[in-house]
Design a protein around this nucleic acid. Structure first.
Lengths: 139, 139
DNA sequence: TATTGTTATACTCTATAACTATA
DNA sequence: TATAGTTATAGAGTATAACAATA
């Protein structure tokens, strides 16, 4: 029967609810770092030492490329991000974190993972189980 | 020891990652319904038959009250939401869904729960376990 | 006087369309 | 001609501060 479907659907609904409930907690971490949600997302996506083309970033953000221009303009003017044209194709501009950007990104990740409060309601076994299941979901 | 802390922290990080990965999938459901993310959030929060004061909505959205004014202006001009002053305290304006709003909200929830795809990777047992654990998290 | 919501203002985020530079 | 990114424009989302109406 469709029990498996039902469980998957129910889990999906719960994850969405969790998403909504906590989408209002994450911004606290973001404003702690003086970043807008979009800027936070960008910093999260630019992995240290792995320059990423602007177009690829637009894909990951699911937004228009024109958007990325302004987003990066602001981060660059704050000294957190650098544009550099690729040697073999000068149309492409690769983004990388500056030292200051690295620092803010690390701070952001610390702040975002600072409050696992609702999770402490779970038993140790459930916490381990949740970790195992989620790892499979996001891999 | 700190194992419990570690598991809670790890689970939190994974949920955040899940949040980021899927924050770009949910907007598809939102634009299907021709709603912005914020409008989607509002419709999600106004439960059918349970009028909610504007200030309470600002709390739930974790945003300034002045924001809610514009947000509701736009939804009201589209005929999805109604403002009504409470009889016993006419400062307070309670929000309720119109019939059209009810319809769009139901459509939105359907679209949002339409794709439990990554969840189908999990075994039936894991799906049930995930449901049980998440229920405790969002209750 | 205190509270609820609105208005005015300014900035960020977002998409569309037209454009520039490079390939 | 096609692609990567930018610019111009317009509308939505957001916060702060000053305001109006009600309590």
């Amino acid at each position: 029967m469709g029990n498996k479907e039902q469980d998957a659907c129910r889990a999906w609904q719960l994850l969405i609810k969790f998403y909504f409930v906590h989408r209002r907690e994450l911004p606290a971490a973001e404003t702690d770092c003086d970043l807008s949600p979009a800027q936070c997302h960008v910093l999260h996506l630019i992995e240290p030492g792995q320059p990423i083309p602007m177009g690829r970033l637009a894909e990951l953000l699911s937004c228009d490329a024109s958007n990325v221009t302004g987003l990066i303009d602001r981060l660059e003017s704050r000294g957190l991000v650098q544009r550099r044209p690729l040697e073999h194709d000068r149309r492409v501009k690769a983004l990388d974190l500056t030292p200051a950007g690295l620092h803010v990104r690390a701070q952001l990740l610390r702040h975002m993972t600072r409050r696992p409060l609702p999770l402490s309601r779970l038993s140790p076994e459930d916490q381990r189980t949740l970790v195992r299941i989620l790892q499979r979901l996001v891999e």
